[in-house]
């Protein structure tokens, strides 16, 4: 049940076994945790810099990985500008790529 991947190997069953073992270990550690934790009290509410948590607010998908996306934004905006949706550009890219491929196969 082992997939050879040239320099290593991959066995999902071993991985699953390890994953189960790690989960059990985590559960075991958790069961030894603090007894003074109480559900449904302020202890379980998120800490928002001491502010009261507003009702019904949900952090939408658009706000996940915000910093990550912001860091990439300059590159992405440049790429988006290239995706004009202009069908003539599509054709031009095809011709340019074809010219490149031709140069490569004829000269190399």
């Amino acid at each position: 049940m082992i997939l050879e991947t040239f320099e290593g190997f991959w066995s999902p069953l071993v991985w699953t076994a390890v994953a189960v073992a790690v989960t059990l270990l985590a559960l075991a550690l958790r069961s030894r945790g603090r007894r003074d934790h109480k559900k449904g009290t302020e202890q379980t509410a998120p800490f928002l810099s001491g502010e009261a948590a507003p009702d019904g607010v949900h952090v939408g998908g658009q706000h996940l990985y915000w910093g990550f996306v912001e860091a990439l934004r300059p590159y992405i905006e440049r790429l988006r500008a290239a995706h004009t949706g202009f069908v003539v550009d599509y054709v031009t890219w095809l011709v340019v790529a074809l010219a490149g491929i031709m140069l490569l196969v004829l000269l190399v």
């Binding site: 599509y90 890219w93 790529a97 074809l98 491929i101 031709m102 490569l104 196969v105």
Partner: peptide, 20 residues
């Protein structure tokens, strides 16, 4: 070979011919 590569890479959707 170049023509075949161009046509098939286009249909496979390789950058820069992927916009469709």
């Amino acid at each position: 070979l170049g023509l075949l590569l161009g046509g098939l890479l286009m249909k496979a959707g390789s950058v820069p011919m992927h916009m469709w």
